[in-house]
C-alpha cells in the first residue's frame, strides 16, 4: 500500500519502500519453503500436490499479512498524535482509484488461487465415483470376510464405535491394522455400522467421512515405506479420540508375505482401545456420564499393534 496523500513521495521514500517490499518478498519466499516442514512426511502421491498448494498459499498469505502489519506498525510509530495535540488530521474521505485497485488485486489473486486449486483438485481426483449402496444387514460380527461384495482389488474399511476393521476380500484376511503395498493404487470401500466417522491419514493428506447407509469408494497410492496413523476425524462419540489405527506401507514382497501369514492365522480379537477402557471402567469406575457401549472388538486374523512408533 502506497501513500494516498496528495504529496508526491520523494525518491528516497520510494527506494525505501522498494527495499521494504523486496524484504517482505524474500521473507515470504523463505516462509513458503519452510512451510513444507510444518506438515507430516509425504507418504502418498497426493501429498506433494497438497503441500505445494499449501506452500504457495503460505507464501502469498505471509506477504499479505506482513504488508498489512507493516502499514499498521508504520502508522503506530510515525503517525502518532503528539501529546496534547487535540487537532484532527487532514480529512481524506476516500480515493476511488485506490478502491478499484484494492478490489481488483484481491479478486485476481483469489481467482488465481482458486484456478490453481481446481487444477490440483482435478489431478487428485480424490473421490472415486460415489455410490449410494445401502448396506445389507450385516451378519459379519463373527468371522472373516464373506467375499461376495467387492471386486478383489478393493479393501473394505469398516468403521465402528470405536474400532477400525480392514478386510482384504480376495485373500480372506481381516485385520485391525491397515497394510498397503508401496506405489500400488488401492481403492477402499468405506462403510460405517453406526455413526459418522472420518477416514483420515495425515501422512497421505487425505480424509473422507464415512457415512452410515452409504458405501463410498476412495482411492489413493502410498509412496513411502513406513508406519503411519489413521485417525477418526468426524466426531463419533465417547472414545472418538482413541479410535485410531496404524497404517503400514510395505514393499510388494513384504505385503504378499503378510497377507499369506494373515490368511493362515486364526481369528482373534482385534484392537479396540475403547472396548479395553470400557471393560476396565466396569471394574474400576471413574465417574462420568452414561455412554454408548463400545462395539465388541472385531474378530480378525491380525490385530496388529497401535503402540509401535509411527512416522506421522
Amino acid at each position: 500500500m502506497t501513500s494516498s496523500t496528495p504529496r508526491r513521495p520523494g525518491p528516497i521514500a520510494l527506494a525505501a519502500l522498494a527495499i521494504w517490499i523486496g524484504l517482505l518478498v524474500a521473507i515470504s519466499l523463505w516462509v513458503a519453503r519452510a512451510s513444507y516442514g510444518w506438515l507430516p512426511v509425504q507418504a502418498s502421491n497426493a501429498a506433494p500436490l497438497v503441500d505445494g498448494l499449501f506452500s504457495f498459499e503460505t507464501g502469498i498469505g505471509t506477504f499479505v499479512f506482513l504488508g498489512v502489519i507493516s502499514v499498521m506498525a508504520w502508522v503506530m510509530l510515525v503517525h502518532r498524535a503528539e501529546k496534547y495535540d487535540e487537532s484532527d488530521a487532514e480529512p481524506i474521505e476516500g480515493n476511488t482509484r485506490l478502491e478499484v485497485i484494492w478490489t481488483a488485486i484481491p479478486f485476481v489473486l483469489v481467482m488465481a488461487i482458486a484456478w490453481y486449486a481446481i487444477q490440483i483438485n482435478t489431478e487428485l481426483g480424490v473421490l472415486g465415483p460415489m455410490e449410494h449402496i445401502h448396506l445389507r444387514d450385516s451378519q459379519e460380527q463373527q468371522g472373516g470376510y464373506p467375499g461376495d461384495r467387492l471386486p478383489a482389488e478393493q479393501v473394505e474399511v469398516i468403521a465402528r464405535q470405536w474400532s477400525w476393521e480392514f478386510r482384504y476380500p480376495s485373500q480372506h484376511v481381516s485385520s485391525t491394522e491397515l497394510h498397503l503395498e508401496l506405489n500400488r493404487p488401492i481403492t477402499f470401500r468405506l462403510v460405517s455400522e453406526d455413526v459418522l466417522h472420518g477416514f483420515f491419514i495425515p501422512a497421505f493428506r487425505l480424509k473422507q467421512d464415512v457415512i452410515p447407509g452409504r458405501a463410498i469408494d476412495f482411492s489413493l497410492t502410498p509412496t513411502r515405506l513406513g508406519r503411519y496413523r489413521l485417525r477418526d476425524s468426524q466426531f463419533s462419540g465417547t472414545w472418538f479420540a482413541a479410535n485410531q489405527a496404524d497404517v503400514v506401507v510395505e514393499t510388494a514382497e513384504d505385503h504378499g508375505l503378510w497377507l499369506k501369514q494373515a490368511a493362515a492365522a486364526p481369528l482373534q480379537s482385534g484392537l479396540s482401545v475403547a472396548a479395553a477402557e470400557y471393560t476396565e471402567q466396569q471394574t474400576n469406575p471413574r465417574g462420568g456420564w452414561p455412554t454408548v457401549v463400545p462395539a465388541p472388538p472385531p474378530q480378525v486374523n491380525v490385530p496388529g499393534s497401535s503402540s509401535l512408533p509411527h512416522d506421522a
Binding site: M1, S4, V75, E90, G94, W102, P106, A114
Partner: peptide, 30 residues
Amino acid sequence: FMVTTMLIAVPTGVKVFAWLGTLWGGKIRL
C-alpha cells in the same frame, strides 16, 4: 463453493484496506 468462499476475501479486503487508509496519515491515539 471454494470459489464463492474465496470471493468473500474481496469485500473483506475492501474493509481492511479502508481501515488502513483511515489510519494512514492520521493522528493516532493509542
